[in-house]
Design a binder for these strands. Structure first.
Lengths: 144, 144
DNA sequence: AATAGACGGTTACCAATGCAACAAAAATTA
DNA sequence: TAATTTTTGTTGCATTGGTAACCGTCTATT
């Protein structure tokens, strides 16, 4: 019977590494230790774009709309996020960060960047190769 | 305010790619469409090593013991897996695939290998670089 | 303008999963 | 050998996440 070495199997490895990195990433939340990954993604997206609807956030951060909806509510309850009704389209809610939300963003971003840098540093000369391969991999899957 | 581009952020990208690849990977289950990822990992591990305890399966496939426990039960109910009590240690259950289980394994493995090959092919000359970088990345995180 | 369909967002429901507590059986220590 | 601790594996509980149904609003067709 032909065998397969799970530990060398690409889908398994990619998934495993993603999980490990996400796990370690939680350490960068610092004081905001109870932030979840979906909440972080919403925070990061709004920090990046200032104002957006929930759908656009989901598209930019690869999250299901229910996940976005729940993360948005959590951030709202935390007073990091504010919603206002769009004038053009009253179905849509325009979301943006409050001052407290921007403060949290400004607090987390440098740690996140440092965390990423630490990984890339550990990779040494392989780092640029990895990034290039990831680009390619992403494009491969976007196409179909 | 210093910004971070989420779409270029390494932890996000790794996680996203892992999710996309896993999603696509489901297509290789073929007739066994209702198999879950944890079940596949247990199947793959037992196909690779013939006989193992649940703990060893969890270690080899990076799964929490409760996940293993439940996947094992599901495969057992499917009659793909058999348990027998260990003589040396009566806490442990020695697990192995039944004939049906080995048949399913033999059925899925070639598809899995083809799936992987397709990805590596799409990556072209970047493929070996990616694999090398993944090795490096895995080692980076194993160490601490 | 009226109707039908599409769309943004929320929620009820169910499946999946991790944590903590547990049982049973070693292994260790006294 | 008795008592304590560790280990394997399962299960109850709470959390998380996706599917589908839904509400209100917008758009297109007539």
């Amino acid at each position: 019977m032909k065998k397969l070495a799970l530990e060398n199997f690409l889908p398994y490895r990619l998934n495993r590494i993603g999980a490990v990195v996400s796990q370690k990433f939680k350490s960068v939340y610092g004081a905001h230790h109870d932030l979840t990954i979906p909440e972080w993604r919403v925070l990061a997206t709004l920090g990046q774009f200032e104002e957006m609807g929930a759908k656009a956030i989901g598209q930019h951060s690869s999250m299901h709309k229910t996940k976005v909806s729940r993360a948005v509510r959590a951030l709202e309850e935390r007073r990091w996020l504010r919603r206002r009704e769009s004038d053009q389209d009253r179905r849509e809610e325009i979301l943006s960060l409050t001052t407290a939300g921007r403060r949290a963003y400004a607090d987390i971003v440098p740690r996140a960047v440092a965390f990423e840098k630490q990984i890339l540093l550990a990779l040494g000369s392989d780092a640029t190769k990895l990034l290039a391969s990831l680009d390619r991999l992403e494009r491969t899957f976007e196409e179909n």
